[in-house]
Design a protein around this nucleic acid. Sequence first.
DNA 1: GTTCTCGGCCG
DNA 2: CGGCCGAGAAC
Length: 261
Amino acid sequence: MIMERKRTDCPALPPGWKKEEVIRKSGLSAGKSDVYYYSPTGKKFRSKPQLSRYLGNSVDLGCFDFRTGKMMPGKMQKNKHRLRSDQLSLSKGKPDLNTALPIRQTASIFKQPVTKVVNHPNNKVKTDPQRATEQPRQLFWERRLKGLRSSDVSEEALRMMDLPKGLQSMGPDSTDETLLSAIASALHMSSAPITGQTSSAAEKNPSIWLNTSQPLCKAFTVTDDDIRFVSALESVSALGGRLDVMSSVCVSGTRSITLYQ
DNA sequence: GTTCTCGGCCG
DNA sequence: CGGCCGAGAAC
């Protein structure tokens, strides 16, 4: 006799996702149940961390209850010790499973990127370059990207990319990891030249003079060596596959680098 | 080889 | 306890 496995739809999940509950029918743990989720493509997920890894950091599963499949607003994870756990997980080389990120928080695990303001000829407000280019941005927001890792389809983390020697990081967290995220983000969020912080005042007191649309590093120029360096890179996916970078252009002075994913 | 299932660790 | 994942069993 074949037990019909019921894969149920789940309101908190995007369409196509299914939830399944399997009752253990033998052994010491008989009666206990295991919960699984299936993506629209049929991939099976058997834990929240696994789901979280797959969905990426654009989805906060912080209050998603894996067993019931519902969002539990009351069950927020504690943010009290976030910084410490960041440093802890970093120093121990463990993946950061904290998914709180600068994204819109919703009651669904749909990917819902924040609104991007772009120029549009028919839109009075958005064609205003002031508004398009000077959206408020949190100081050192790049730090929130810490722990992001690109991974291939088997969830295997890709190795961290090396940065050119000449880049000098600045700000409260001057690790290569944060700098890399900052540069990658700057590249794909704007087609404007990425120059680093050109104001010398910013070097002395970043908290006040930082240009938030430029990455957290001192002004740099692109050399022939840098171009050879970048050419040798396999892919911008090392910068974070989640960034959806199709192509970005980095221009500094008269030289340019084009990065393709 | 893949998928299913339960044990058992660990928080 | 229950979540998570390893590993043996089953296919």
